[in-house]
């Protein structure tokens, strides 16, 4: 008895799935047949809604064509892998041109709309059939919109990550200004990851340039909290283990106040007011002395 019911249910499910598949096939055939007209309608709607303004009409039409074909293909096969790859590829091409997330999502939803309208028109005589068609169409269309949007956002995030990486690498130069004297100007916010990279780069620089004194300039660091201060202390300690003295410069009065208020132990840090002072102190430590050349008699006369 139970098995009977179960098999009935399975059968019903099976026939329903079959019916959906058949409807989808019919739907795809319809969309293929009306490809030119629907595509044009869609391109018109895109222009009308002032989406993709960064692209020319021809480009929009070309992209619309390939999106349309991909869309119909996904409806037919139900596999989103190809679409995922296409969405990634499309995002890669259009993100540098300044296309926004709402535009991408907007055009996909427009296409969904255009196609749904064409289905309404075709099946308007038979309400039951229209319902069945929409049952088949809507989930597939939603999945497509979802895939494209996710692909676009992921691509954007990938680009952002890449750029962060680039900024990080650019923003921690270790510069040699004199024999055995390095400067490390820090600009921007320091977080744990950056502090670590910074320290590693500095230590490598100390070994490569055989540095004895390092001036760390933090004029460009907007705020310093306990974590950043501890990172600084660690950098100083690690440099000392490599045999280099560290001078920290550019501590603003606000930062100095904050550090004293939060009670960071800065006794190990050799601080000098500004970068110029820091370099002068470093030169003193290294035994350099900078003197102005004597003016020539001819120059004195003039």
């Amino acid at each position: 008895m139970t098995t009977d019911i179960r098999s009935h249910a399975a059968e019903a499910k099976h026939t329903r799935a079959d019916a959906t598949a058949a409807l989808l096939r019919e739907l795809v055939a319809h969309l293929r047949k009306n490809r030119t007209q629907l595509r044009e309608e869609w391109a018109r709607r895109i222009t009308e809604s002032k989406l993709l303004t960064a692209m020319t009409r021809e480009e929009i039409f070309a992209e619309a064509t390939s999106v349309y074909d991909n869309y119909v293909e996904v409806l037919e096969t139900g596999s989103v892998e190809a679409l995922q790859a296409y969405a990634r590829n499309l995002s890669e091409r259009i993100i540098p041109r300044g296309v926004e997330t709402h535009e991408v999502l907007g055009i996909v939803l427009l296409l969904r709309d255009v196609l749904a309208r064409s289905l309404f028109k075709k099946y308007q005589a038979d309400f039951g059939l229209l319902n069945a068609v929409l049952d088949a169409y809507e989930p597939a269309a939603n999945r497509i919109a979802n895939t494209v949007a996710v692909g676009f956002v992921q691509e954007r995030e990938r680009i952002i990550r890449q750029q962060q990486e680039a900024i990080r690498e650019l923003s921690t130069p270790v510069l040699q200004v004199r024999d055995r004297l390095l400067i490390l100007p820090i600009i921007g916010v320091i977080d744990s990851l950056r502090a670590r990279q910074l320290t590693e780069q500095l230590l490598r620089g100390i070994r490569a340039n055989r540095a004895k004194v390092v001036v760390v300039d933090i004029t460009g660091v907007p705020s310093v909290d306990a974590t950043v201060a501890n990172h600084l202390v660690q950098t100083v300690d690690a440099s000392r283990l490599m045999g280099a003295n560290v001078i920290v410069t550019g501590l603003s009065s606000e930062i100095a106040q904050t550090l004293v208020t939060i009670g960071v132990d800065l006794s190990k840090i050799n601080a000098v007011g500004d970068l110029q002072g820091g370099i002068e102190e470093a030169e003193r430590l290294l035994g350099y002395s900078v003197t102005m050349p004597e003016p020539k008699p001819s120059e004195v006369k003039a």
Binding site: R196, E200, L203, R204, I206, D237, A238, L241, G243
Partner: peptide, 19 residues
């Protein structure tokens, strides 16, 4: 003490071993 490598120096500081 001479020749502490950068990685070693960093690890030591992280462990609080600052000599």
């Amino acid at each position: 003490i001479v020749g502490i490598q950068p990685e070693v120096a960093f690890a030591m500081v992280q462990l609080g071993l600052t000599l």
